[in-house]
Protein backbone atom coordinates (compact mmCIF):
# COMPACT_ATOMS: atom_id res chain seq x y z
CA UNK A 1 0.00 0.00 0.00
CA UNK A 2 2.84 2.36 0.87
CA UNK A 3 4.51 1.39 -2.39
CA UNK A 4 1.33 2.17 -4.32
CA UNK A 5 1.04 5.60 -2.69
CA UNK A 6 4.69 6.28 -3.52
CA UNK A 7 4.15 5.15 -7.11
CA UNK A 8 1.15 7.42 -7.53
CA UNK A 9 3.07 10.34 -6.03
CA UNK A 10 6.01 9.74 -8.36
CA UNK A 11 3.78 9.40 -11.41
CA UNK A 12 2.00 12.64 -10.55
CA UNK A 13 5.40 14.31 -10.08
CA UNK A 14 6.62 13.02 -13.45
CA UNK A 15 3.40 14.12 -15.14
CA UNK A 16 3.36 17.59 -13.60
CA UNK A 17 7.04 18.27 -14.28
CA UNK A 18 6.65 17.18 -17.92
CA UNK A 19 3.58 19.42 -18.24
CA UNK A 20 5.48 22.32 -16.68
CA UNK A 21 8.37 21.78 -19.11
CA UNK A 22 5.93 22.17 -21.98
CA UNK A 23 4.03 25.15 -20.61
CA UNK A 24 6.63 27.35 -18.86
CA UNK A 25 7.85 30.48 -20.63
CA UNK A 26 11.27 30.58 -19.00
CA UNK A 27 13.38 27.90 -20.71
CA UNK A 28 15.69 27.50 -17.71
CA UNK A 29 12.67 26.46 -15.62
CA UNK A 30 11.78 23.95 -18.34
CA UNK A 31 15.28 22.42 -18.18
CA UNK A 32 15.20 22.14 -14.39
CA UNK A 33 11.77 20.53 -14.44
CA UNK A 34 13.03 18.00 -17.01
CA UNK A 35 15.83 17.17 -14.57
CA UNK A 36 13.25 16.64 -11.81
CA UNK A 37 11.36 14.34 -14.16
CA UNK A 38 14.49 12.27 -14.82
CA UNK A 39 15.20 11.98 -11.10
CA UNK A 40 11.65 10.78 -10.35
CA UNK A 41 11.90 8.30 -13.24
CA UNK A 42 15.13 6.92 -11.80
CA UNK A 43 13.41 6.40 -8.42
CA UNK A 44 10.63 4.51 -10.24
CA UNK A 45 13.25 2.32 -11.94
CA UNK A 46 14.86 1.62 -8.58
CA UNK A 47 11.55 0.56 -7.03
CA UNK A 48 10.89 -1.70 -10.02
CA UNK A 49 14.12 -3.63 -9.24
CA UNK A 50 16.21 -2.17 -12.05
CA UNK A 51 19.07 -0.47 -10.18
CA UNK A 52 21.39 -0.54 -13.21
CA UNK A 53 18.96 1.50 -15.27
CA UNK A 54 18.28 3.75 -12.26
CA UNK A 55 21.98 4.65 -11.90
CA UNK A 56 22.28 5.38 -15.61
CA UNK A 57 19.10 7.47 -15.63
CA UNK A 58 20.18 9.48 -12.59
CA UNK A 59 23.69 10.22 -13.91
CA UNK A 60 22.86 10.79 -17.57
CA UNK A 61 19.28 12.06 -17.47
CA UNK A 62 19.40 14.22 -14.38
CA UNK A 63 22.97 15.52 -14.57
CA UNK A 64 24.50 15.47 -18.05
CA UNK A 65 21.38 16.16 -20.13
CA UNK A 66 20.39 19.04 -17.85
CA UNK A 67 23.88 20.51 -18.19
CA UNK A 68 23.80 20.23 -21.99
CA UNK A 69 20.38 21.94 -22.12
CA UNK A 70 21.59 24.68 -19.78
CA UNK A 71 24.57 25.32 -22.09
CA UNK A 72 22.15 25.49 -25.00
CA UNK A 73 19.94 27.98 -23.17
CA UNK A 74 22.98 30.11 -22.29
CA UNK A 75 24.08 30.27 -25.92
CA UNK A 76 20.59 31.17 -27.17
CA UNK A 77 17.74 33.09 -25.55
CA UNK A 78 16.24 32.38 -22.19
CA UNK A 79 12.66 33.52 -22.77
CA UNK A 80 10.39 31.63 -25.12
CA UNK A 81 8.80 33.80 -27.80
Amino acid sequence: MLLLIMFIFLFILIFLSALFAVLAKDLLFCVISLGVMSLATSIVFFILNAPDVAITEASVGAALTTAIYVFGVRRTEREEK
Binding site: D52, I55, S59, L64
Partner: peptide, 28 residues
Protein backbone atom coordinates in the same frame (compact mmCIF):
# COMPACT_ATOMS: atom_id res chain seq x y z
CA UNK B 1 30.73 2.04 -10.03
CA UNK B 2 32.75 0.74 -12.96
CA UNK B 3 35.28 -1.31 -10.97
CA UNK B 4 32.55 -3.05 -8.96
CA UNK B 5 30.20 -3.47 -11.91
CA UNK B 6 30.54 -7.24 -12.00
CA UNK B 7 29.24 -7.60 -8.42
CA UNK B 8 26.85 -4.71 -7.79
CA UNK B 9 24.63 -2.63 -10.07
CA UNK B 10 26.51 -0.24 -12.30
CA UNK B 11 29.06 -0.51 -15.03
CA UNK B 12 31.16 1.37 -17.51
CA UNK B 13 28.57 3.77 -18.86
CA UNK B 14 27.15 5.09 -15.55
CA UNK B 15 30.64 5.20 -14.03
CA UNK B 16 31.97 7.22 -16.94
CA UNK B 17 28.97 9.53 -16.78
CA UNK B 18 29.57 10.15 -13.05
CA UNK B 19 33.25 10.94 -13.72
CA UNK B 20 32.21 13.37 -16.46
CA UNK B 21 29.83 14.99 -13.96
CA UNK B 22 32.80 15.59 -11.66
CA UNK B 23 34.78 17.34 -14.40
CA UNK B 24 31.66 19.31 -15.35
CA UNK B 25 31.26 20.55 -11.78
CA UNK B 26 34.96 21.48 -11.71
CA UNK B 27 35.03 23.63 -14.82
CA UNK B 28 31.59 25.14 -14.23
Amino acid sequence: IFLHGHLTPGGGFPGGAVIATGFLLMFM
